[in-house]
């Protein structure tokens, strides 16, 4: 038995080694670094330096505010949209279902830089199609990259476009696990389609939707690509700077790894806290 365990561990060893070196150790290491002054050489242990700065840093609060605004608006909108998309995808009336399934999922597999470039073109003030379309309904051109509110809206639109289909596919899987005869029974019970959606579909999807919310919260807390690539590194003037971006700037522009680590741990702690709250309230609502 012991020999067989030994062989098993031997097979696992390469993975465990890589896991420990590139996963476990950086997590521990960054926690330790967050207690060091990394702006001197050599680094010095200064437990309150980075965490103290974090508490009073307006840039941190700006990034936290932006991140939470995106979270509060984007996650519910996206999940609602994903649910509607999933219900439509699940409709027996829909022809060529695999095609739509692929189309909705495709944004996830598109390269981030490519999609950011396309979005920048689409929302360009001079020749973007979005402003042209708005013009046709009488709305004057919006300066998407120079106005902080518009830039936030752009980030939210981009993230929603990218991830709504992904969540729709997960919710679709949940929908398909609801047996069809439950709906037939409801139909015979004279329950309308709308009532069926609110009283049967949504309650049965609750665990799946909760799962998607938690995934999205974690993803949004780490949001980096869209504000970095689409709205010019958190522009205009920090108007779309997120916690992920602040972390990047502190770590890799200012090379202040101690402060970046403190931000990283704050992001993780917030993500965990918000997810736990979600799970708690999700269960309560049952």
């Amino acid at each position: 038995m012991r020999l067989r365990n030994g062989i098993a561990y031997a097979f696992l060893a390469p993975y465990l080694l890589i896991f420990a070196t590139f996963w476990l150790w950086p997590i521990i290491s960054s926690f330790l670094i967050s207690f060091q002054n990394t702006r001197v050489n050599p680094w010095r242990f200064a437990p309150s330096l980075n965490w103290g700065r974090l508490v009073g840093d307006p840039a941190f609060y700006n990034a936290l505010y932006n991140t939470l605004i995106i979270l509060v608006i984007q996650v519910p909108v996206m999940i609602a949209l994903a649910t509607v998309m999933a219900v439509l995808l699940n409709s027996p009336l829909l022809k060529a279902r695999p095609l739509y399934r692929f189309a909705f999922f495709a944004p996830v597999v598109v390269g981030e830089v490519a999609y950011a470039a396309v979005f920048r073109l689409m929302f360009s003030i001079d020749f973007g199609i979005v402003n042209k379309l708005l013009g046709t309904v009488g709305i004057s051109a919006i300066s998407w990259f120079d106005n902080a509110t518009a830039a936030m809206a752009l980030v939210i639109i981009a993230v929603t476009w990218r991830w709504a289909g992904y969540n729709a596919i997960i919710i679709l899987a949940g929908l398909q696990s609801v047996p069809g005869d439950v709906y037939e029974a409801a139909t015979l019970d004279r329950v309308s389609k709308v009532q069926q959606f609110f009283h049967i579909t949504l309650p049965l999807l609750r665990p799946i939707i909760l799962f998607c919310v938690v995934l999205s919260v974690i993803g949004t807390m780490q949001l980096f690509t869209e504000p970095f690539l689409i709205t010019n590194r958190g522009g205009p003037g920090g108007g779309t700077e997120t916690l992920g971006l602040l972390l990047y700037r502190q770590g890799f522009n200012s090379l202040n790894f101690g402060y970046a680590s403190a931000i990283a741990y704050t992001i993780a702690a917030l993500a965990v806290a918000i997810s736990l709250l979600n799970l708690f309230f999700g269960r309560q609502a049952k």
Partner: peptide, 19 residues
């Protein structure tokens, strides 16, 4: 419509509302 036929059906899989 099925709902208007004043019939009730018992399904093989019971089809109870699980929640």
């Amino acid at each position: 419509e099925p709902a208007e036929r004043r019939i009730a059906m018992v399904f093989q899989s019971y089809a109870l509302y699980p929640h």
